[in-house]
Structure formats: C-alpha cells, structure tokens
Design a protein around this nucleic acid. Structure first.
Lengths: 118, 118
DNA sequence: CTCAACTGTAATATTATTTGTTACAGTAAA
DNA sequence: TTTACTGTAACAAATAATATTACAGTTGAG
C-alpha cells in the first residue's frame, strides 16, 4: 500500500483536531492491524490492507470503547431482586444487538464508503 | 396501570444512584409517553401502558442522546475535500445502521425482558 | 554527518460532560 | 395541617475527553 501516505498533522488539519490525538487513535488502529506507519522524514500512515478488504465492522470493533447501547451502568444494589440480575440480562441483550450491528457493518467495506467522496 | 408504583427514592436505591437523577430521566420518559406519575404522598411512577405494548425500540429512542455509532464529530475543515463531505456521508451511514438496530429492538418488548427476572 | 520532518509516547493542563447535592414550590393522602 | 412524595432549578463535585508541551527515536536529503 505504498500510496496514500499522510502525516498526522495533515489528518489533524482535515478534522480540526490535535495531531497528538490523531496519533493516539492511529496507534490503536495500528494495534488492530488496520493501518501501518512509517517513521522519520516523509513518514506517515497508510492502510495495512486494501480498502476493499477492510470491513466497517473491523473499524467499529477497533474504535468503539463501549457497547452501542452504552455500558456505564454502575453497581446496582445486590439486595434488590432486580439490581442483582440486571447486568447479566443487559449484557445478553447488548450482545445480541451488537451482533446484528456487526453483521450489518460486516457487509460494508471502507472502499465502498470512500467511493462516495467525489 | 394502577399496580407497580414506585418512588424515585426506591428506584434510586436499586441502581445506587441519586434520586434526582432518576426523576430527571423519568421526566424524559414521561415526555416520551412511556411512564406516568402521581404526585403527592404515596406517589410515584408507573408504566403508561402495559409492558407487552412497550417495545425496546421506543425506550432506546427515548433514552439515547446520540447515534449508536456516536456523533460528536466536531467541525471538519471545509477546505478539505474529505472534511467537506464527511458529515453528510456519515449521517447516511449512521441512519442506515440505526434503522437495523431499531428493527431489531422493535421485535422485543419490555415484558419479554422483564420476564427474564425470576 | 547533521539538519529537517516525521512518529510514538508520556506527562500534564484545560475544558466539557456527567453525576451528585441542596433547595424549594407544588400536590395529595392521612 | 403534617407527611411523603414529584418536578425543577441552581450549583458543586467528580470524571472523562481533548489539548498541549515535551522529547526520544527514525529516516531521508543535502
């Protein structure tokens, strides 16, 4: 994938955000095998594989930090009949929903999405 | 739905959270027609319709504040070919995904979910 | 062989958002 | 007419997101 090499500064400029944040997220994407990068002068990042081989589900998985329906439920009261079981039941619901979401995103590729830009 | 009337204090105790926060969210659910409440002594909230008539999609719609895939993308650089169009394309993608999610949640009712609690 | 332009990462600061608290007017049962 | 609630608002505190600064390491070019 020699083509399309961009610096974090360039990307940051496009989305109006701090370059260090870009590098941090890129670091995450790299760990997930979606991008690779070249250090040193004229360095930058590029896709680790062709865009038509990258499914949106992979990106979603790499990028998301919590379930689509949210997670942050704190500790319910274990003395409460409902509180005691709620997390178990929510987890299974969330997983089920997440699965359909992944299936949907798995049918779309990054190339397809990028193709929309004229 | 005369049965199952609970005070915000009681609910707050179950989820280990502040009663005022409960009342705030309840206020939102009320505006969405999911619950009703009774003021005064022995007051509290109750479902506005039977649990088997409440679909999880309705709850999701009432409760969520941002799309399942997130929204908070700030202002992209309009001088950038990509930045200029990104929000439009993300929106349509998000909507499509959201639709499948709603379809999935629309098949489940609150009664069904509550039935899991033994 | 050294300067310039990058990445990668840590440490810290700033800002925004979430959550909690206090306060109090309004309502209804007892 | 007291008691136990709801409904809100205003403010405080805690947490999370974002930004900044700093600097070591890498690579290409003169």
């Amino acid at each position: 994938m020699g083509d399309e090499l961009h610096s974090s500064e360039w990307i940051a400029g496009s989305i109006n955000i701090n370059p260090v944040l870009v590098r941090k997220e890129l670091s995450n994407l790299r760990q997930h095998g979606l991008v690779e990068s070249k250090e040193g002068k004229n360095g930058g990042v590029y896709l680790a594989k062709p865009a038509n081989k990258i499914h949106l589900s992979e990106i979603y998985e790499a990028v998301r930090q919590e379930s689509a329906l949210g997670t942050k439920r704190t500790d319910p009261n274990p003395k409460c009949k409902v509180g005691k079981q709620i997390n178990k039941h929510l987890d299974s619901l969330y997983n089920e929903v997440e699965d359909t979401l992944m299936q949907k995103l798995g049918k779309k590729t990054l190339a397809e999405f990028a193709g929309k830009f004229t």
